[in-house]
C-alpha cells in the first residue's frame, strides 16, 4: 500500500520544512506570519475537535483567546510569574471558564449554542473594554516575552512550533480512538450515539473544556507574538476566521483545517491590499464551501484520492480461504 508511506512521508517533510523555516527564509516578517499561524493552530486544532468532529458550532472561542491573553499578560507581566507557569495558568483559567460556559450552553441545540457562544465572545470584548482596573481598557497592555532561548523571533517560533506539534499530536490521538469515534457518532446522529451508550453531554463537555484549555494557551502565545494587546484585537471577526478555517478545511479531518488556517491567515498578511477585505473574503469562501462542497476541501481531497484508487479496488477479488474454512468448520464439528 502506497498510501501508508505517503502520509508519514508528507508529515515528515512538512515537519522538517517547518523546523528549518527560520533558516530557509531570512525575512523576519514571514517568520512572524508563520508564528501567528502556529499560534492560531494551537486554538484551531482543538476547536476542530469541537466544530469538525463533534459538530458544535462555537463562534465564541475568540473570547477564550482574549481571556488567555489577558491572564498571561497580568500574571507574567504585573504579577511577575514565570511565563511558562503563567501560560499554563491561563490555559487552566480558560478551561474553567469553558466548563462554566459549556455546562448550560452545551445542552442547547445547534443555533442556540452558536448564539450563546457568539454572545460570550461579545461579552468578553465588552468587559475587556469596560473593566479598566483589570485590563487597562482600550489602552491595552504590554505582553511579556519568554525567557532566554525563546526571546528572539526564531526562539519563539520554535517554541510555538513545539507546542503546536504537541497539540496536533494530542488531537490526532484523541480523534483516532474511542473519543474520536464517539464525537463523530454524536455529530452524525445524537440519537443513534446515545443508543450505543455514548455519554453525549459528557463527551461534548470534555471536548469543550479541552478546546478551552488550548485556547487559553494560544491566547498567551498570541499576546507575546503581538507584544501588545488591546480589546480591538479580539473582535468577533477573528472568531469567524477560526470557524471558516475549519469549515473550508473539512469536517472530521485534521490536515484540512490546518491548510485552511494557514492559507486564510497567510493571504491577507502577504497580499497587502486584501487585508481590508479579509472578513468579507472569509464570508465569501464560507458560503461557496457550504454550497458547493459541504464537506470542505478535506472531503474533496478524499474524494479525488478515492477516484484515483478506484481501479485497484475494482481489481481486488476476495477469494474464500477454503482450507482454513474447512479446518474451522471441522474444529467446531
Amino acid at each position: 500500500m502506497k498510501a501508508n508511506y505517503l502520509k508519514p512521508a508528507i508529515v515528515a517533510v512538512f515537519a522538517l520544512f517547518a523546523a528549518l523555516l527560520p533558516y530557509i527564509t531570512g525575512n523576519i516578517y514571514y517568520l512572524h506570519v508563520a508564528t501567528i499561524i502556529g499560534v492560531y493552530w494551537v486554538l484551531i486544532a482543538t476547536l476542530n475537535l469541537l466544530v469538525g468532529f463533534t459538530g458544535q458550532l462555537s463562534v465564541g472561542h475568540v473570547g477564550l483567546l482574549a481571556i488567555g491573553a489577558y491572564a498571561f499578560c497580568l500574571l507574567a507581566g504585573s504579577q511577575g510569574w514565570n511565563p511558562f507557569l503563567a501560560l499554563l495558568t491561563g490555559g487552566v483559567i480558560c478551561a474553567v471558564i469553558g466548563l462554566l460556559l459549556g455546562l448550560p450552553s452545551l445542552r442547547l441545540p445547534g443555533f442556540y449554542f452558536a448564539m450563546a457562544t457568539l454572545a460570550f465572545g461579545l461579552i468578553v470584548a465588552e468587559l475587556a473594554l469596560a473593566e479598566q482596573w483589570l485590563t487597562n481598557g482600550s489602552v491595552g497592555m504590554a505582553a511579556p516575552s519568554f525567557p532566554a532561548p525563546f526571546d528572539t523571533p526564531w526562539g519563539f517560533y520554535w517554541l510555538v512550533l513545539g507546542i503546536a506539534a504537541f497539540v496536533t499530536w494530542l488531537t490526532w490521538n484523541l480523534s483516532r480512538f474511542m473519543w474520536g469515534r464517539a464525537m463523530v457518532a454524536l455529530r452524525d446522529s445524537t440519537v443513534a450515539a446515545s443508543s450505543v451508550a455514548i455519554p453525549i453531554y459528557l463527551t461534548k463537555l470534555v471536548v469543550f473544556v479541552f478546546s478551552g484549555f488550548t485556547a487559553g494557551i494560544a491566547g498567551g502565545l498570541y499576546a507575546t507574538s503581538q507584544s501588545y494587546i488591546t480589546p480591538d484585537a479580539f473582535i468577533v471577526n477573528l472568531g469567524i476566521y477560526f470557524f471558516v478555517a475549519i469549515i473550508i478545511g473539512g469536517r472530521g479531518v485534521i490536515i484540512g483545517p490546518f491548510i485552511g488556517a494557514a492559507v486564510l491567515a497567510a493571504i491577507p498578511e502577504l497580499v497587502g491590499p486584501l487585508a481590508k477585505y479579509g472578513t468579507f473574503f472569509y464570508g465569501v469562501i464560507l458560503l461557496i464551501v457550504v454550497l458547493v462542497i459541504p464537506g470542505g476541501f478535506g472531503e474533496l481531497i478524499d474524494r479525488v484520492a478515492e477516484k484515483l484508487h478506484r481501479r485497484e479496488q475494482a481489481a481486488t477479488r476476495i477469494e474464500p480461504d477454503l482450507a482454513q474454512l474447512r479446518t474451522a468448520i471441522g474444529r467446531r464439528a
Binding site: 458550532l57 445547534g110 469567524i240 468579507f280 465569501v284
Partner: peptide, 28 residues
Amino acid sequence: RIVAASDEHLWVLSTLALATMVQEAMSL
C-alpha cells in the same frame, strides 16, 4: 439549496456567511 439538502447545521453556516459578507460590504 441548503433546505433542499436537508442537513441540520449547514444553514447556520450559510446564513452566517451571508450575514458576515453583507456586514463587511456595508462597512467597506
